[in-house]
């Protein structure tokens, strides 16, 4: 049970920290761009809160749902919300990039990968997921179209099994 409490506490802490961070930003105490210095890094996309806003920030109009994506070893239930393996393979022809979004994180976009010709449209990474959330794989094709597939990843307090 202790884990449940600790887990809940961690969750609450991260939740309140988010709020605090949000307040600082709102009050102008932290300028988002101050933290985001790297040139060529799409700060608008990484500051977006939703799938639609990320698509817009990346220059698209909207994303079409697709089943032509496999999730590989992406878990249904996370062993550790701080380290959730995400494995995405696109079967959509001319896939140029794959972005990974966590719907309920403070900012949705976690990572975006671009595949030059000769590199397969498959990638593995590991991301933080604060609470049970949909994870989106957002695919951009060479002709600028966006497709999206969604997988629910549960973050649980654990214990009590067996």
């Amino acid at each position: 049970m202790e884990e449940m409490i600790a887990g809940r506490r961690r969750f609450l802490q991260s939740g309140s920290a988010t709020t605090v961070f949000g307040l600082f930003v709102a009050a102008g105490l932290i300028r988002p761009e101050a933290a985001f210095a790297q040139a060529g890094w799409n700060k608008d996309a990484f500051a977006s809160k939703s799938l639609n806003d990320v698509v817009k920030a990346l220059g698209g109009a909207g994303a079409t749902p697709t089943n032509d994506i496999s999730w590989g070893a992406t878990p249904e239930i996370a062993e550790n919300g701080a380290v959730v393996p995400i494995n995405v393979t696109s079967r959509i022809p001319n896939t140029q990039s794959i972005a990974v979004l966590v719907e309920k994180n403070p900012n949705a976009l976690a990572a975006k990968f671009d595949f030059p010709a000769g590199t397969d449209p498959t990638v593995s990474t590991r991301v933080k997921i604060g609470q049970s959330s949909n994870v989106h794989a957002l695919i951009k094709t060479a002709d600028g179209k966006y497709f999206v597939a969604t997988r629910e990843v549960k973050v649980t307090i654990g214990g009590c099994g067996g």
Binding site: A45, F46, N107, A110, A111, P116, G118, T119, D120, R126
Partner: peptide, 25 residues
């Protein structure tokens, strides 16, 4: 001399990041 992958990451990528990809050639 050829770029085979580029990535942009936010702070939601886990501590001590892991990356896996594959390319031809």
């Amino acid at each position: 001399g050829k770029t085979v992958l580029t990535a942009e990451w936010g702070p939601a990528v886990s501590k001590n990041p892991f990356l896996q990809f594959q390319f031809a050639g």
